[in-house]
């Protein structure tokens, strides 16, 4: 290796290290700050203490809000995967004129007119049907927002299942529900896992919908974290950091679990 190459190589590694450190800093802050007696916005090795977590436990909103987030996330996940699977199966197998156009329109509208733009009409709607300030209302609005994308992705997985699987089961006398349960759903399991994880992550981090729809009712973690201020009006970094760590654990744990169990695949649910 010539000296010139050596310098180049060293320079490259230095650059990569700098970028890595830059990326790693917030994560390190998340790991260190909760254990710091007087956390600041800069990352530094903490003088270890568990005081922040003690305070977190005493806060009346903190732990219940994680529970509410779980209710929202799991509820939405259950609705999106089950409705999404049924709709995607039907759309994949039944020929309707303009089916693909309909799907694209749904997908496009749902991604263009996202939460923010539709929030006022949705709020009015929820008020009129009496679902404002209820957890069910939040779950339904979130489900509606995510279904088009879920259907679109799941339909792709369903399209990947050879028809002969279902026809074979039909010849043996299986009912449509049996075919869905015994053949179709097991085969698209990676797709369902993908949608489930995606839904949970989306809902877990969603601030706007619960913030607007929930007035007196208990609020999820993403909303509650914005209420952690000291009496002086300063952001309570000890509480926020400890809460953030707690808040991020379920999502990371789920990702690890699902990835190990099913693996993530985004195209064609089936390997033959």
């Amino acid at each position: 290796m010539s000296p010139k190459e050596l310098v180049g190589r060293v320079g490259l590694y230095v650059l990569i290290s700098l970028i890595t450190v830059f990326m790693a800093l917030p994560v390190l802050w998340l790991l260190f700050a909760p254990f710091d007696a007087s956390p600041t916005l800069s990352t530094s090795l903490p003088d270890w203490t568990g005081r922040n977590f003690g305070e977190l436990l005493r806060n009346p909103d903190a732990l219940p809000s994680i529970g509410i987030s779980l209710v929202h996330a799991l509820g939405t996940m259950a609705l999106v995967t089950s409705f999404g699977a049924l709709a995607a199966y039907a759309l994949s197998r039944v020929k309707i004129p303009g089916r693909d156009g309909l799907l694209y329109a749904l997908l496009l509208l749902s991604s263009i007119i996202t939460g923010t733009a539709a929030m006022v009409p949705i709020f009015t709607l929820m008020t009129q049907i009496g679902l404002v300030d209820t957890q069910l209302g939040v779950v339904l609005v979130l489900t509606g927002g995510m279904l088009p994308t879920a259907i679109f992705i799941l339909k792709d997985f369903m399209d990947g299942i050879p028809r002969s699987y279902e026809e074979s089961a039909r010849v043996f006398g299986a009912s449509p529900l049996q075919i869905l349960r015994d053949v179709v759903l097991p085969v698209v399991r990676p797709g369902l896992a993908t949608i489930a994880v995606w839904t949970v992550v989306q809902v877990w981090g969603n601030f706007l919908t619960p913030f607007i729809l929930l007035r007196q009712a208990e609020r999820p973690a993403a909303v509650v974290v914005y209420t952690f201020y000291t009496e002086g009006g300063q952001a309570d970094l000890g509480l926020i950091s400890a809460f953030s760590l707690l808040y991020s654990i379920p999502v990371v744990a789920m990702y690890v679990f699902v990835n190990r169990r099913y693996g993530f695949r985004f195209h064609g649910g089936i390997k033959r």
């Binding site: 050879p162 002969s164 699987y165 026809e167 074979s168 010849v171 043996f172 015994d182 053949v183 097991p186 085969v187 399991r189 089936i270 390997k271 033959r272």
Partner: peptide, 12 residues
């Protein structure tokens, strides 16, 4: 009973 061209064995 029918045997399909691709056999249609359930992969799971």
């Amino acid at each position: 009973a029918m045997v399909f061209q691709d056999y249609a064995l359930f992969p799971h």
